[in-house]
Amino acid sequence: MAKKRVVSATINGEVVEFLCEPRQTLLEVLRDTLDMTGTKEGCSNGNCGACTVLLDGRPVVSCLVLAMEADGSEIRTIEGVARGSHLDEVQQAFLEGAALQCGICTPGFIMQTEALLQANPNPTEEEIRFYLAGNLCRCTGYDKIVRAVQAAAQKRLATT
């Protein structure tokens, strides 16, 4: 086993230092070392999108990022989406639109949506479906997720 190294990253606005082995993924460190279990594990090979986080603003599947690669980066996870005790527009739209059933894919969808709306504040349905195609949901049939993304986008546009 290779020696552990110290990694430093900014997670949800706070500088965090942690020890990790070279073989550990960012997902594993978030969940097991830092106890941030809001980021979910669905397949651990990059296929389902449940573990999506934002790495320097880009959406990544954290199961395919080695924790050491995150050194010096800025990471945003589902735990950092709400502003204090207020849900953000995407979270609120998912709740009000019943866009979740079991909820295991929801953190990943919310993070992917945050990235989408950052890049494209007023996406078409086609653009939403294309951008979210890497996130699997087995419960909803996607209808209410796509509508929630549309609702969140409209709400943000109306308030900015």
Binding site: T37, K40, I110
Partner: peptide
Amino acid sequence: DGADKVTGRAKY
């Protein structure tokens, strides 16, 4: 249980 599930607090 909605708030727990959109904030990542729900424990699976």
